[in-house]
Computed example of a mutant assay.
Amino acid sequence: MIKSRSLLLAIATTCLALIGAALYLQHVKDMLPCPLCVIQRYLFLAIALCCFVGAIGDKPRLGAGLGLLGALGGLGVVGKHLYVLAHPGFSCGIDPVETVLNKIPTATALPWLFRADGLCENAVDTLFGLSIPQWSALWFVLLTGALVYLLVRRQR
């Protein structure tokens, strides 16, 4: 049986790898992140942080629970992103969310990671048949499932 700490570390590593993939797409493939993409980055980082702290601390279930909140938040954000893509003409475009996101300290200190410059409706390029928001949704579902598994299984 998989140990809680090992699975939490695997989840944290996966989230960091997903951030690395997003940075590759942004800086090498010139796919600018939109506000919803940036919020998803924050949530992947939050999941990674919670799982890492849970894995090295005394309370792995607490780390899994907090990570689950981040994963559920990610499902909500990516759901909105998929809605925007499914309904042409509906846009998150230049809106107050982008302005707020680009002015918070993390975005001003690390603009290469957290600056929202793209439009949500432009995320139509595919990778293996799925758009980037669809891939994000798939990963949030998988992470949610893994974290729920950690919370409901018997401790060993």
Results as ranks from 00 to 15, higher is better:
78 V>N: 00
104 I>D: 01
98 E>P: 10
45 L>A: 15
136 S>C: 14
145 G>R: 13
144 T>Y: 06
50 C>W: 02
53 V>S: 12
23 L>G: 08
94 I>V: 15
140 F>T: 00
66 L>Q: 10
137 A>C: 12
140 F>C: 06
96 P>H: 09
107 A>H: 02
2 I>P: 05
53 V>T: 15
50 C>E: 03
51 C>H: 01
5 R>A: 03
21 A>Q: 09
18 L>R: 02
89 G>A: 06
99 T>W: 14
91 S>R: 04
62 L>F: 12
116 A>F: 04
98 E>R: 15
151 L>C: 01
77 V>Y: 03
73 G>L: 07
70 G>E: 00
120 C>I: 07
155 Q>F: 00
23 L>E: 04
105 P>T: 15
65 G>N: 09
34 C>H: 04
9 L>Y: 04
10 A>W: 00
146 A>H: 03
14 T>M: 09
132 I>L: 14
126 T>P: 03
143 L>V: 10
113 L>W: 07
71 A>Q: 01
28 V>N: 11
87 H>D: 13
73 G>S: 08
130 L>E: 11
47 I>D: 02
118 G>Q: 07
108 T>C: 10
18 L>N: 07
80 K>N: 04
8 L>C: 03
114 F>P: 00
23 L>H: 09
127 L>F: 15
16 L>T: 11
37 C>V: 10
47 I>G: 02
30 D>P: 12
94 I>N: 14
88 P>A: 07
65 G>D: 05
83 Y>C: 11
56 I>M: 15
18 L>V: 12
91 S>E: 05
98 E>T: 13
98 E>G: 12
29 K>M: 08
25 L>V: 07
143 L>D: 03
14 T>W: 06
32 L>R: 07
63 G>Y: 04
52 F>D: 13
120 C>S: 12
136 S>H: 11
95 D>M: 13
36 L>F: 09
65 G>P: 03
94 I>G: 12
37 C>D: 04
101 L>Y: 06
35 P>I: 01
129 G>W: 14
150 L>Q: 01
110 L>A: 09
58 D>T: 12
2 I>H: 11
50 C>H: 08
102 N>S: 12
143 L>W: 02
130 L>P: 02
125 D>V: 12
57 G>S: 13
